[in-house]
Structures are given as C-alpha cells and as structure tokens.
Nucleic acid binder design. Structure first.
Lengths: 139, 139
DNA sequence: ATGCAAACGCAAACAGTTTGCATTAATTTT
DNA sequence: AAAATTAATGCAAACTGTTTGCGTTTGCAT
C-alpha cells in the first residue's frame, strides 16, 4: 500500500495525523485498537485527539484503506491495513496472545459457497481459539 | 439440551428468569443480544432487569450452557445455546441478514493446526460477508 | 421449617464510541 | 500566490453497551 498517495487517491485529505495513523498500522504486527493507535502516535510526538482517531479510521475504512476487526469476548474495535489477502488469527484464551495463521483453507470453500448461495462474497473472518503451549502447562 | 435440568446439573439455581432466558435461546434462529433477550422475555410477561440478563448469561457461559458470539462491525455481544456442533454465518453487508451455514470446512483443518502449533484448540468462529441476491439487484 | 448462598433489582459507575460545533489546515479556484 | 472552499481536528458533552455494589428476595440443602 502506498501510504504517500493513498489518501488523495481515495478522495481524503493528506494530513500529518492520518499519515501518522497509517504508519502506525504499517508497523504493527497485529490489529490495534483506537487507543493503541493514539498511544503509539503520542510516542512519535504526534498529539492527536481520540475522536480524531475514530473519525480518521472510520473514513479510511469507508474507502477501503483500513479494515475493522473484532475479536471474541472483546468489545473494542481493532483496525489493520486492508490487506490484499486477509488474516486469520489463533487466539490463546488464557494469555490473550495472538498468532497469525498464514494458510487459509477457505478460498476454495468460499467460491463454492458463492455458487451455491448466489451470494456475492467479499470477505471472511476466521478466528480460532484455544490454549497456547505455555498456558497449557500452567493449567 | 435439557433445559429443565441443565442449570442444577451445572451448579446454578433453577430460576424462572434463567429458564426463561434458555427458552428464548431455544426458540431463536440466530444469536440474540442481551437487549433482545430482555425484550422477548417481556413479551412473555417475564419482567427482568437488564443486569440480571447480563449476569445470568455470563454465569451460563462460564459453565458452558451458552456461548458468546460476536459479529464484525458490531460491538455487542450475542448469545446462543452452546451447540453440540457450532454455527457459522453468512452475512449480507447491506441488509444485515444472516444465514446459517451448515457445513463446516474446518474440522480437519483445526486438527492439523493443533498438531502443527501445539495449541489445544477449543473453538473457532467463521463468518463470511458479502451481498445477498436481493441486495445485489439493488446495487 | 430454617438458614445459607445464589440470584435479583436498582442505581450508579464505567468503557468505548459518537456527535455538534467552533477552529484549523489542506486542496481548489482565481 | 492569495482567497475561497471543504475536509479534518479538538474539545466537551452525549450516548450505548456493559459492569458493579449493595440491600432484598428466592431456591435449595439441612
């Protein structure tokens, strides 16, 4: 994703704060929530109001620059850059750690399903929950 | 699931309100949110306080009678009876309709993944998003 | 029937998110 | 390059969904 131009290309204004948000998302391994983004910006000396972060992300999600993610048992909204592909996560129910799953077993399945149902399918979320090796020991 | 006895079996007290909640969940096609449950109870002349619904569901989720569900772009928590199997949903992004997907392509995949990662996997969420046939016409 | 713990209602607190409005900054027009 | 236009921002307040403390009620074991 070309952070330098994407905002203008999508009809949004290219501001320091929005670019800052995109850089945060670019450097982060997992989806971040709004407060997390604000905190990372402040570490980089970019003062920003929470509602600005909310609005920027909503706008950018609207034009497909970022996408919303949410996880079971957590009411917060997380964001990530809109990936060419898509990500799936393995969650530890105890320590809340997150591991990305590379392989997606659903591409073919989604195609079949689209045919059967006549839906036009655009994305899917897959999250798998369990206990990581460390937390199994503790149990 | 045997609504008559499950509460006592799991060490919870069998009250009218909790039984009412379970009956609501039994008669509902899709996961319901807490307010939805309260409204359905009131229609059945069961007055109940919202916090009672919250606490009852949390307790029942704790002992595995019900399970929490959440959907992309909606921060509310939904509940359903804990199924022997599990459910996956097909979401229309426009009209927000929900269709249950019977077949789960992930059973084998989850087993493999558990072996590879040494996680003890307990559940997964799969939600597929797109546009239903009706909403495709409107576009 | 009595006593104890769990379940309940109510009000208040809380967390995350959204909104209205006045101000500032980015892009467009001149 | 300056002026005009419109989007983006900060701030305070509102709002929604959820949680908590506490006094009262109910279910259930004794």
């Amino acid at each position: 994703m070309d952070i330098k131009n994407i905002l203008n290309e999508k009809g949004l204004k290219k501001t320091k704060k929005r670019i800052g948000i995109l850089k945060v998302l670019e450097n982060v391994e997992y989806p971040v929530d709004v407060l997390g983004i604000k905190n990372k910006l402040i570490k980089n000396d970019i003062e920003i109001n929470l509602s600005t972060v909310y609005r920027a992300l909503e706008d950018m999600a609207g034009v497909g620059i970022v996408s919303r993610v949410n996880f079971s048992g957590d009411t917060r909204v997380f964001y990530e850059l809109q990936h060419e592909g898509h990500n799936h996560y393995l969650h530890c129910l105890k320590c809340k750690s997150l591991v990305m799953i590379d392989m997606c077993p659903l591409r073919e399945y989604q195609k079949d399903l689209a045919k059967k149902t006549n839906y036009e399918l655009v994305k899917h979320n897959l999250d798998i929950y369990g206990y990581c090796p460390k937390c199994q020991e503790k149990k």
